[in-house]
Write a protein that binds this DNA or RNA. Structure first.
Lengths: 342, 342
DNA sequence: TACCCTCGCGATAACGTTATCTCGCAGGGT
DNA sequence: ACCCTGCGAGATAACGTTATCGCGAGGGTA
């Protein structure tokens, strides 16, 4: 032993044992410890035993950072989503699929802020993660081009990225809106209104456009029926006012996102909500407990999350493969609110 | 130059430029590049300019792993919670507080599995994170003792850890149950039932015990009123049967967790649920949209999450400080379901 | 017996960064 | 003329791991 100081004088962290310490304790070479730690079969049994004993005696834990630096791979993928800590089935599916693939998941919230999103993505690149899945929020992702050129695998989820070309998996917004619309026509509704996100964001743009197309295909005019915009109680209340209490009131409603649906229900209040035919785009937590239970066109969130990881794995395996876009259909879940006749 | 190969022949990742490459490009020493990257003020302006030019020319991004290995600090804390990707206000508060403190958060789901929890915690230790916040699930955390001895800061959230002594922040289960109970007595209820989690888990144990104590303090017998157990529709239905339709039926109900509340509402169905006085322990997503809106004793989740980070920061700053346990009171949120008179 | 191969282990050089030390040079006081 | 100080930059040694190479012993073959 080279000295008596085992602890630390100043109150800083005690120093952890390293491979060198284990090697000294076991009386073998450093390289042999490494072999034992990595289950290298070429190490003799008595050496392995000595090393194992030293490891448990010193409570040695390998330093993942050093390993990653040396091997170049982290075994970790990043997910930059709008909100962890909220209901997010895509993220749950990503985590599970990643685990099944032997990868660790590092998730962070972009929190609906473009600056925050950029901060997270750049940080993930600096950490040299093996790949990144991102639910894009901002409108210009050109700053990622150098990272793509450097071989960083990136997959977009829920909407495409702007300014760069990467793999993408998303819902079929257009036909989902079509499904909601036609479901309501089946119950006799002719004047059907739409309230949804503002058209500045990709999904709001796509869904509003799809709804206009559906109205047009049924020979309906658009006047007073299509209301994209900010999801605030005030704006939604104004939109509902126009749609439901105008000269030709709508008898049914399609809501363009989960937040829209919840805000509409709050603004309408229980009595009005229970009389209006509503189909929501996107699932709502505990939609079955509402009165009436909420009919929705649900995104196949689990499939989307799983596909995102699969696309990422494919790109990690072959960086040169052509960029791929996967579109996932939606499914109608009938619960009551969408089956109120005109 | 040792060779002409700039790209990569076999389809592997292109090699990223390192500090050495930047130094060569800029015609300065490696150490100078490091100084520029770290905003060291002792570097002359013309050197800084040359280095910056080289950095943008090569699209250089520092390797966080190497930096962490060298400095020993990661600037990252881990959070092992039961579910990321579910509503989890504690986790949201942790993320925000961590960000405000300049720390990156690494969150992972233990997924209600003891083995998974252990896997995650050990992995976080191997990554040498600066600290760990854990919502403990398993019943024996003794395996973490070596990590604590090695100076790894750990904070328990929502319940204490078993077998080791670490800082902890949690709700005041006992007085929360008391608040729910007394709120219902104020509306004339005498026979009040409890349905909650099984007593094998810490919170289930604490809350059932507190409810028994409340009954006792009011001179009520316990028979047929206290129902801890697995949260399945079958078990909950059986418990409700005993409590509500026995010889002396209960007129009010306290539910012991969010999952319990939701399962109770599903089992009762809308009509029965709207007639029974219910106070839920723990907030329920969109409780205001239910009919009647749900009265709950809410945990101060944001405060709990923030306190967890603060405890962790305190321990990181002073590893020798005495272990601290913080208990946070709950708050009653009146919405309707708890104010139905007997 | 000479030769070559394999097998098991050890010495040592990386990985990409930061920290320590050294050095050259300019400026000012004695 | 001398030394001391300070300042800005470079050479070099870490951090803890894995990969490359080499070496000695043992055994099979000609």
């Amino acid at each position: 032993m080279s000295g008596a100081r085992d602890g630390n004088g100043t109150g800083g962290r005690p120093k952890r044992p390293t491979m060198v310490d284990v090697a000294r304790e076991a009386g073998v070479a450093l390289r042999t410890v490494s072999r034992v730690v990595n289950d290298d079969p070429t190490v003799g049994p008595e050496y392995a035993a000595k090393v194992q004993a030293a490891i448990t005696a010193l409570n040695y834990r390998p330093d993942e950072r050093a390993r990653q630096l040396r091997t170049g791979i982290t075994g970790t993928i990043g997910a930059a989503v709008r909100r962890i800590a909220e209901v997010n089935p895509e993220l749950a599916a990503i985590e599970q699929t990643a685990r099944e693939s032997g990868l660790t998941l590092f998730a962070a919230s972009t929190d609906f802020e473009e600056a925050r999103e950029r901060e997270i993505l750049v940080s993930m690149c600096r950490q040299r993660l093996d790949g990144i899945i991102v639910e894009p929020f901002g409108e210009n992702h050109g700053y990622l081009q150098p990272e793509l050129d450097a071989g960083m695998p990136v997959v977009a989820m829920d909407r495409p990225m702007s300014g760069i070309s990467v793999d993408c998996v998303m819902s079929d917004n257009a036909s989902g809106i079509g499904t909601a619309f036609h479901h309501l026509t089946r119950y006799g509704h002719r004047r059907i209104a739409y309230v949804g996100d503002r058209e500045q964001v990709y999904s709001g743009r796509e869904r509003a456009a799809a709804f206009r197309a559906a109205l047009g295909a049924h020979g309906q005019s658009l006047d007073g029926l299509v209301h994209p915009g900010e999801i605030t109680p005030e704006r939604v209340a104004a939109a509902l006012d126009t749609a439901l209490y105008g000269p030709e009131p709508a008898t049914a409603l399609v809501t363009g996102s989960m937040d829209t649906t919840l805000t509409v229900l709050r603004v309408l209040g229980p009595k009005a909500a229970s009389r209006l035919a509503i189909v929501g785009f996107d699932e709502v937590p505990h939609a079955d407990l509402l009165q009436p239970a909420l009919t929705v066109v649900a995104q196949q969130t689990a499939k989307i999350g799983r596909t995102a990881v699969e696309l990422l794995l494919a790109r990690m395996a072959d960086p040169g493969r052509p960029v791929q876009a996967v579109v996932v259909p939606l499914t109608l879940t009938v619960r009551g609110s969408g089956e109120i006749p005109v």
